[in-house]
Computed example of a mutant assay.
Amino acid sequence: MNITVNAKPHELSAQTLDKALLQLGYTSSAIATAVNGQFIARTARSQTRLTDGDRLEILTPMQGG
């Protein structure tokens, strides 16, 4: 399926958000996710199904000052 991840197109085989994160290489639990503008809690990622055309935003913490 084709989805947009952080404003870039991706083709994924994963059907759920947790599997998509693994496929994209996000292994840390310290991230925030949103699908189509809706925040998705870490505990809900395995139940969040993705469909063709979805927009996924992934935010990771940054260090610096």
Rank of each mutant, 00 (worst) to 15 (best):
A32Q: 03
D54N: 12
T4L: 11
A41L: 11
G53W: 09
A34G: 02
D54E: 05
Q47W: 00
E11L: 08
I58F: 08
G37D: 13
L24G: 01
S29F: 03
S13I: 04
A41E: 11
G65H: 06
L56V: 11
D54K: 04
P61H: 08
I58D: 10
D52W: 00
I58G: 08
L59A: 15
S13T: 15
K19N: 14
R45E: 14
A14S: 15
N6I: 02
D54V: 07
Y26V: 05
T27C: 04
I31L: 15
A44V: 00
N6A: 08
P9L: 10
T43F: 01
Q15S: 13
S29R: 14
L21Y: 06
R45L: 09
L56R: 05
G64N: 07
Y26P: 03
H10Y: 10
L22S: 11
T27K: 15
L50P: 05
A41H: 12
T48V: 07
L56I: 06
K8M: 09
Q23C: 01
I31R: 03
T51Y: 07
L12E: 01
L24Y: 10
T48R: 11
M62T: 15
L17Q: 04
L17N: 01
T16H: 11
Q38G: 03
N6Q: 05
T27V: 09
T60G: 08
R42W: 04
L56A: 05
A30T: 10
T60Q: 14
N2D: 15
N2K: 14
S29T: 12
N2P: 00
A41Q: 14
N2S: 12
A14H: 08
G64K: 11
D52H: 12
L12C: 05
V5C: 12
L21H: 03
I3A: 04
T51G: 09
A14I: 07
L50W: 02
P61V: 07
I31P: 02
G25Y: 08
E57R: 11
R42F: 06
S46H: 10
N36F: 03
R49K: 15
L21R: 02
A32C: 08
A14W: 01
L50T: 07
D18W: 02
T16R: 12
A34R: 00
L21A: 01
M1P: 09
L24I: 00
L50D: 07
T27R: 13
G64R: 13
T33Q: 00
R49L: 13
R55E: 10
G25K: 05
E11W: 04
L21S: 04
A41K: 15
T27E: 12
L50C: 04
E57P: 00
G37W: 08
G64T: 07
L24V: 01
G53H: 04
V35L: 14
K19G: 03
L22D: 13
Y26T: 05
G65Q: 03
K19D: 13
L22K: 15
